[in-house]
Structures are given as structure tokens and as C-alpha cells.
């Protein structure tokens, strides 16, 4: 039985005004349940690839499919629904700093309009899994960078999305915390979520034998 492709990029072109084309002809297929590293130098377009997938940017040309739907033609509620099916982890965490860790984790569930009891159970479950129950009531700004990233992971995964996109999740962290973050992402992948991690951390790539996609000179190259 063949594995269903979750993400498909076909002949995707993207350029920004007054600059060289970022992508000239990107083709990509990611299957459900995969764990993928997306690498390349700074400015190679890793974040843009994620933004294209989230529908935050439009390609100049080409097709981007997610779960069978053409992302470039999604609008309004369909686009929001699409974004809700993806858990996003950012390099700078993008948490609501004045809120507690619990408030932040709860956001995707609130957006989905999930009841209070289910919400509590889901938050309890994910925080237990990521071993962050003890910091749940703390204000985000009082937490360390590593802890904040763990909260961001919990927020991305609490509503069990199909896909998790992590944009340089370990960039600002020490090696020990980076390993912990990676372990957590692996755990989520083992539970069935497809995980794509954008990183230029060579050590991380070497330490884990996963599929690697390299963005180089406007092209995407598969590295083995």
C-alpha cells in the first residue's frame, strides 16, 4: 500500500520585488508521518517555504497541495481551517508573553471552540507528554528560552494537527535544550504527526538520520 502524499510542491516559483528569484522550480513531496529536515544557508528560503505552505505568501507560479487541497486557491474560512491543521513552531517562539504558559497552549483549542473540559484534558495530556506541567501556571516572559520553545511545541501539538512545521526551533538554545526539543518533536512524529524541521544546525542533521532537503541556489535538493 502506497503512503498518501501530505504535501506536494509542483514547479513552485517565488521571487520578491527587486530581488533574485528565491525559488525557480521547486518540486517536493512529503508523505504522511514523515520526519524531514529542511536545511540551507540563512536566506535560502526555508521560512518562505513554510509561509507558502501556510498560505501566508503566494507563489508566483506553480502548485502547492496540502492533504489534497490546493493551498494557493484557499480563501477565507478554508484558509483558516487549513492553518488550523498545521502546528507552527517559530525560532522566536511567538508566544503571548504576558499570558501564562497554559493560556498560550490553550489558544488553538479556543480558536477551534473546544469545550473547557476537553481543553483541560488536552492541555494536561500534552504538557505531561512534554514534561512541562510544572511551568504551566507561569507567565511566559518569566520562562527561559528553552522552556518557551517547549511551550511553543505544546501549543503547536495540543490540537493534534496533521503537520508540524518547526522553523529553526533550536537556533537560540544550548545543545542540551536543543536535544530535548528534538526529542519532543520525535515523540510527536512517533504519535503520527508529520514533522518538518527547518534548521542549519549541522550537528542536529548529523546526529539524526532523517530525510534531508537542502535549499541551494533557488533549488531544492534531496540529500542522503
Amino acid at each position: 500500500m502506497s503512503i498518501k502524499p501530505l504535501i506536494t510542491f509542483r514547479k513552485v516559483k517565488k521571487s520578491f520585488l527587486g530581488k533574485e528569484p528565491l525559488f525557480s522550480d521547486i518540486n517536493l513531496e512529503i508523505s504522511e508521518g514523515e520526519f524531514i529536515f529542511l536545511t540551507g544557508v540563512s536566506g535560502a528560503g526555508k521560512s518562505t517555504l513554510f509561509r507558502l505552505l501556510l498560505g501566508l505568501e503566494k507563489p508566483d507560479d506553480g502548485s502547492i497541495k496540502f492533504n489534497g487541497s490546493e493551498v494557493t486557491s484557499l480563501v477565507g474560512k478554508e484558509m483558516l481551517q487549513h492553518r488550523r491543521s498545521i502546528g507552527m513552531i517559530f525560532q522566536d517562539y511567538k508566544l503571548l508573553e504576558k499570558r501564562t504558559a497554559e493560556d498560550n497552549i490553550a489558544i488553538p483549542l479556543q480558536i477551534k471552540g473546544i469545550s473547557r473540559s476537553v481543553k483541560s484534558a488536552k492541555i494536561k495530556d500534552i504538557t505531561h507528554k512534554l514534561k512541562i506541567s510544572q511551568i504551566l501556571k507561569q507567565q511566559v516572559r518569566s520562562l527561559s528560552g528553552g522552556e518557551q520553545q517547549l511551550i511553543a511545541i505544546a501549543r503547536a501539538a495540543v490540537h493534534s494537527p496533521t503537520l508540524i512545521l518547526a522553523d529553526e526551533p533550536t537556533a537560540n538554545l544550548d545543545p542540551r535544550m536543543a536535544t530535548r526539543i528534538f526529542d519532543m518533536l520525535t515523540l510527536l512524529n512517533e504519535e503520527g504527526m508529520t514533522v518538518v524541521v527547518a534548521t542549519h544546525d549541522i550537528n542536529l542533521l548529523k546526529a539524526h538520520k532523517k530525510r534531508i532537503l537542502l535549499l541551494k541556489q533557488s533549488a531544492l535538493i534531496e540529500v542522503h
Binding site: 501556510l54 483558516l80 488553538p108
Partner: peptide, 9 residues
């Protein structure tokens, strides 16, 4: 902006 990225209507 964060809420919008997370798909908040």
C-alpha cells in the same frame, strides 16, 4: 498576527 497565523477567525 500570531493568532491569525494560528488560524484564528
Amino acid at each position: 498576527e500570531i493568532l491569525k497565523i494560528l488560524g484564528a477567525p
